[in-house]
Simulated assay, not measured.
Amino acid sequence: MHTAVMGTAGFLVLVLLLRISGARTMASMTPLDFVVAVTLGSAFGRTVTAVDVPASQAVAALVLLVGLQWLLATVRYRGGWMRRAVDSPPVLLWYDGALVQESLRRHRMTEADVHTAAREAGHGSLAGLQAVILQQDGSLGVITADGMGDGSTVLPYVEGHPA
């Protein structure tokens, strides 16, 4: 009975907290968001299965974790040192017809990963691609030469850009 009550109550509190904290909590996950999600899951799992954890302590833990995520997101939004400390910049892996070997090495990626990204984006080869980027959430983005334009949404923010 304890598990059913705590599970239901914890679930409702968690849904309410995530609804209040906004879409950022559930958006495409950065490493920080992943840590928060795992920690929330761990805290929620402990409260559901442990008989010795009072409901008030469970709610306090969930509120604390979501509050910390919200606080870090707010400080990150304002920029400066926190954004640099928390966010990994996008990284060029392929640019202008060539692999960016230093970026591949540093991020433990391979040429095969770049080819896989091209295939997943519907391209049969790297010809015609301007950039393959390791995004902040760990996904690989593909930009065609036709889609690059002046590069203003890509190049200023990408580690490893040759310019």
Score class of each variant (00 low, 15 high):
2 H>V: 02
58 A>D: 04
122 G>A: 06
6 M>G: 07
92 L>S: 06
57 Q>N: 11
79 G>V: 04
81 W>G: 03
60 A>M: 14
73 A>T: 15
4 A>N: 07
17 L>V: 10
103 S>M: 00
107 H>Y: 05
63 V>Y: 03
106 R>Y: 00
32 L>F: 15
61 A>V: 13
159 E>V: 08
124 G>M: 03
122 G>K: 06
40 L>Q: 14
134 L>M: 04
27 A>V: 01
22 G>M: 05
161 H>R: 06
47 T>G: 13
141 G>H: 01
123 H>P: 10
11 F>N: 09
38 V>G: 12
12 L>T: 15
40 L>F: 05
64 L>M: 12
106 R>Q: 02
43 A>I: 14
119 R>C: 02
161 H>Y: 14
137 D>K: 00
135 Q>V: 01
59 V>I: 15
47 T>W: 12
12 L>W: 12
20 I>C: 01
142 V>P: 02
53 V>H: 03
65 L>P: 05
149 G>H: 08
146 D>G: 12
90 P>C: 02
54 P>D: 11
139 S>V: 00
104 L>E: 00
54 P>A: 04
84 R>S: 07
76 R>L: 05
18 L>H: 12
116 T>E: 09
104 L>F: 04
145 A>P: 07
126 L>F: 13
133 I>P: 07
68 L>A: 08
141 G>R: 07
74 T>D: 06
5 V>R: 11
8 T>H: 03
78 R>D: 00
53 V>G: 09
133 I>H: 02
66 V>C: 07
81 W>M: 09
61 A>I: 07
151 G>C: 01
13 V>M: 12
122 G>S: 09
42 S>F: 01
98 A>E: 14
130 Q>Y: 09
88 S>D: 06
136 Q>K: 04
18 L>E: 13
66 V>M: 07
77 Y>V: 14
114 V>T: 11
2 H>I: 03
142 V>C: 05
101 Q>K: 14
89 P>A: 03
107 H>T: 03
118 A>G: 10
147 G>T: 06
4 A>F: 10
147 G>Q: 14
146 D>K: 13
160 G>H: 11
20 I>S: 02
105 R>T: 00
106 R>W: 00
